[in-house]
Simulated scan of single mutants.
Amino acid sequence: MADEKQTTDNRYRDQIGEENRLGDTDYIEETAAEIAAPATIRRDRDNEVQRDEETASGRGIGLAALALSIISLFVWPVLFGAAGIILGFIARRRGAESLGSWAIGIGAVSIIFGIFIRPFF
């Protein structure tokens, strides 16, 4: 029995070298532990429903931002204009790009007009 083990050890000694031996095992095995994450399948209708919900919430915030920006043309331009700009950015991020852009533009014009032009009149 001991002679058979010695024969097996000599067989692998020529292939992998003496310094690569792992104890008294008859074989050297390499394994990998990588596992791919399971693929998620998204359906188009689920994404459309989610986009519609996001656009609806963005539309409400966009209308509020536009209202604040228009009010800022007449009353407290710095306060209401800044609030309209901030809400405009939030509305754009939630999907109401045109309402958000208009709110940002009108709020910026209102602040510039209120700070630089209105004091001279």
Rank of each mutant, 00 (worst) to 15 (best):
41 I>Q: 07
29 E>P: 01
46 D>A: 13
26 D>Y: 08
26 D>N: 07
34 E>M: 03
48 E>M: 11
43 R>G: 04
30 E>N: 00
50 Q>C: 05
45 R>D: 12
33 A>N: 12
28 I>P: 00
33 A>H: 09
38 P>Y: 02
41 I>R: 12
59 R>E: 15
43 R>D: 09
48 E>R: 12
26 D>P: 02
25 T>C: 06
34 E>K: 06
59 R>P: 00
30 E>G: 03
25 T>S: 12
58 G>F: 03
25 T>P: 01
28 I>D: 01
34 E>T: 06
40 T>K: 09
25 T>D: 11
54 E>V: 03
50 Q>E: 14
29 E>V: 11
36 A>K: 08
44 D>S: 13
56 A>R: 15
25 T>A: 14
33 A>S: 08
45 R>E: 15
27 Y>W: 02
31 T>A: 04
42 R>V: 11
43 R>M: 05
32 A>K: 07
51 R>G: 03
37 A>E: 06
56 A>K: 14
45 R>Q: 14
54 E>F: 13
48 E>T: 06
59 R>D: 10
59 R>G: 02
39 A>V: 14
57 S>Y: 04
45 R>N: 04
29 E>W: 02
37 A>K: 08
42 R>H: 13
54 E>W: 11
51 R>C: 00
56 A>C: 01
30 E>M: 03
58 G>V: 07
52 D>V: 01
25 T>G: 04
39 A>H: 08
46 D>P: 09
57 S>Q: 13
27 Y>L: 09
49 V>D: 13
37 A>S: 07
56 A>Y: 06
57 S>K: 15
44 D>L: 15
29 E>I: 10
54 E>L: 15
34 E>R: 07
35 I>Q: 09
43 R>Y: 13
38 P>K: 12
30 E>Y: 06
48 E>V: 08
55 T>E: 08
50 Q>K: 13
35 I>C: 01
27 Y>T: 12
33 A>D: 09
25 T>V: 03
40 T>Y: 01
49 V>F: 06
32 A>F: 05
42 R>Q: 11
47 N>K: 15
48 E>H: 02
25 T>M: 05
57 S>F: 09
35 I>R: 10
29 E>C: 03
58 G>L: 05
40 T>R: 11
53 E>G: 03
26 D>S: 09
43 R>V: 07
52 D>Q: 13
28 I>W: 05
37 A>D: 05
56 A>S: 13
48 E>W: 05
30 E>W: 07
36 A>M: 03
46 D>T: 12
42 R>W: 10
50 Q>I: 11
44 D>C: 02
25 T>N: 12
57 S>C: 00
52 D>A: 15
30 E>S: 02
54 E>Y: 09
31 T>I: 05
58 G>W: 01
58 G>E: 04
36 A>T: 03
44 D>F: 13
49 V>P: 01
46 D>Y: 11
53 E>V: 11
53 E>Q: 15
32 A>T: 10
49 V>Y: 07
44 D>Q: 14
